[in-house]
Amino acid sequence: MVKKPADKKPTDFKKRQKAFFKSESFKAVAVLAIIALVTSLILSVVYRFTAIDEAEAMRKKINDVYNAGTITPIDVSGYDNKADSVILNAFMAEDGACVVVSKSKKAYNAAQGITLFVIIKDGRIAKVANYSSSETPGLGSKALEGAYLEQYVGMRASRLASGDDVTSPSIPPLDIKYISGATKSSTGVRIAVEAAAAFYVKEVAQ
C-alpha cells in the first residue's frame, strides 16, 4: 500500500515541533522571557509603593522653607528664560509672596545644576533656599547654606533682574560675595537668583 504524501506532512511537522521545543535555543529564549516577566512583575509592585508625586513633594518642600499656606501655581510654560537658567515652577502664596523655583545650569556639578527656591515679597527678596544640588561637600555646598544665601535677602528684585548690565554711575554695582574656591557654585547661585528676580519682574510684578 502506497502512503499518501498528505499523511506524511503532519507527522514531520509534529516531529519538528517536538524537536524545536526540546532545542537549546528554545530553552534559552524561554528562560530569558520568564526572568524578564518575573522581574517586570517585581518592579511594577515596587513602583506602586515608591511612585513619587513630584508636585506634592515640591509643595511640601516649599512649606518647609516658607510658611506659605495655600499656594496657587503660576503658568511658566510661555516664559522666555534668561541665559543659563530655567524657571521650573512658580507659585503665588496666600500672603502675596511669590515662590519661584529657579534652576541654574551653571554649577560645579553642571549635570545636576543648582535649583533654588527664591521667595520674593513686595518686590524684594524675602528668602533664598536650596532645593536640589550636588555641589562638593564642604566647598561648593557652602554656597548653598543659609549663611551665604542670606546676602540676597532684602535686595530689590528689579535691581537683581538687570544684574551687572546696569552701567549708570548713579546706580551702585551689586554687592554679591563669592566663596573663594567655590566660584562656580557661587556663580550658579547668583544666576538662579537673578533668573527668579527677572521672572518676578516680567511676569508677576507687571
Binding site: 517585581i42 518592579l43 515596587v46 513602583y47 509603593f49 515608591t50 511612585a51 513619587i52
Partner: peptide, 9 residues
C-alpha cells in the same frame, strides 16, 4: 532598579 526607586522615594 528596586534600590533606585526605594532611594528616590
Amino acid at each position: 532598579t528596586v534600590v533606585d526607586m526605594v532611594m528616590a522615594k
